[in-house]
Simulated scan of single mutants.
Amino acid sequence: MQLLPGAEPFVHEGSPTGVLLCHGFTGCPQSMRPWAEHLAARGLTVSLPLLPGHGTRWEDLQHTGWQDWYATVDRELTALAGRCEEVFVCGLSMGGALALRLAARRGDAVRGVAVVNPAVTFPRGRGLALGVGRFLVPSTKGLTGDIAKEGVGETGYDRVPLHAAHSLRRLFRLVREELPQVTQPLLLLRSTVDKVVPASDSALVLASVSSRDVTERVLRDSYHVATLDHDADRIFQETDDFISRLSTRKTARDRT
């Protein structure tokens, strides 16, 4: 199956500090690639996988579920932990939910978590309708492309397959239940204007985790896909500062 432009996974071998990045629902690595490339330029070991069902056709996503998406990032974390001394996990939107679940379930394997506009809830009315509606209607309008910066687009699906959306709802429920198990340092960046994920999701994450080291940053010039928007450089710098503060290792650039 041919991949969409920019949907290719990204891997960079660098220092003993690893970073795993998780993209969002119906999106692909393209939305995270500048973040990944920035971290790679810092000398870190970076992995940005393509989640199953993504990056090709929306019909392919219809045949996958949260277990497939989570299994992929869980395997990548195991692989990074096998060749790095410490691993940080980052995520955008649904990728933020996956990152938080990794932190909750994998404990010391995750040194810290950085999430951008994390999604952990599903609109109640839509969620209930999915129970039956997904057997009647295969898809609905897409979610990608919520970016304030002119001339910038997100590569992803223009349709949301409803079977996959139903599975996404189940993932969010599990993540909400597990948030108190998140004890690692947390960096949360949220946009003031987000047409995809409500601000209450970030508030719920902050109120539910058990982390003592929590940093919240507000992004005032970006929409949902902030990693491609006006605040992208700020996200990258905040992540640099977060990792540098917590890391027991120094990147190649830090040593120069």
Rank of each mutant, 00 (worst) to 15 (best):
164 A>S: 11
247 S>Q: 00
194 D>Y: 00
210 S>T: 09
199 A>K: 06
136 L>E: 08
195 K>A: 14
244 S>H: 05
183 T>W: 02
186 L>C: 03
85 E>F: 08
118 P>M: 03
153 G>A: 14
59 E>H: 13
160 V>Y: 08
225 V>T: 04
124 R>T: 13
252 A>S: 13
175 V>E: 08
236 F>D: 11
159 R>H: 12
125 G>H: 06
190 R>S: 15
62 Q>R: 15
73 V>S: 06
5 P>R: 14
199 A>H: 07
52 P>A: 12
104 A>K: 01
161 P>V: 09
152 V>D: 07
28 C>H: 03
132 V>K: 08
151 G>E: 09
141 K>Y: 11
214 V>E: 05
74 D>A: 15
43 G>F: 07
40 A>Q: 03
158 D>M: 14
153 G>R: 13
4 L>R: 09
215 T>N: 02
78 T>L: 14
164 A>E: 06
60 D>T: 12
211 S>L: 07
19 V>L: 11
44 L>F: 09
12 H>M: 13
174 L>P: 12
60 D>K: 10
1 M>E: 13
112 G>F: 01
117 N>R: 02
3 L>S: 12
220 R>P: 04
236 F>R: 14
104 A>Y: 01
251 T>M: 04
80 L>P: 09
196 V>M: 01
117 N>E: 02
19 V>T: 06
43 G>Y: 07
85 E>A: 15
97 A>G: 03
32 M>C: 05
244 S>E: 10
118 P>H: 04
166 H>G: 12
188 L>Q: 07
68 D>G: 12
19 V>G: 09
11 V>P: 14
103 A>F: 00
66 W>Q: 11
132 V>C: 10
173 R>Y: 10
56 T>I: 13
250 K>D: 04
88 F>W: 10
35 W>E: 02
111 R>G: 01
245 R>V: 01
196 V>I: 05
103 A>Q: 00
12 H>T: 10
129 A>S: 08
87 V>K: 08
38 H>R: 08
61 L>M: 15
33 R>D: 02
66 W>K: 06
38 H>S: 07
30 Q>W: 00
222 S>H: 01
59 E>D: 14
93 S>L: 05
56 T>H: 08
185 P>R: 07
77 L>V: 07
8 E>N: 13
46 V>P: 12
41 A>M: 10
170 R>A: 15
153 G>W: 09
48 L>K: 03
84 C>G: 13
160 V>M: 13
237 Q>C: 08
35 W>G: 04
193 V>R: 11
144 T>V: 15
40 A>H: 02
204 L>E: 11
240 D>M: 06
222 S>I: 00
177 E>G: 15
1 M>V: 14
11 V>D: 15
224 H>L: 00
141 K>Q: 14
47 S>P: 10
126 R>H: 12
14 G>Q: 11
75 R>C: 12
246 L>H: 07
116 V>D: 01
197 V>Q: 03
109 A>P: 00
135 F>P: 12
192 T>V: 11
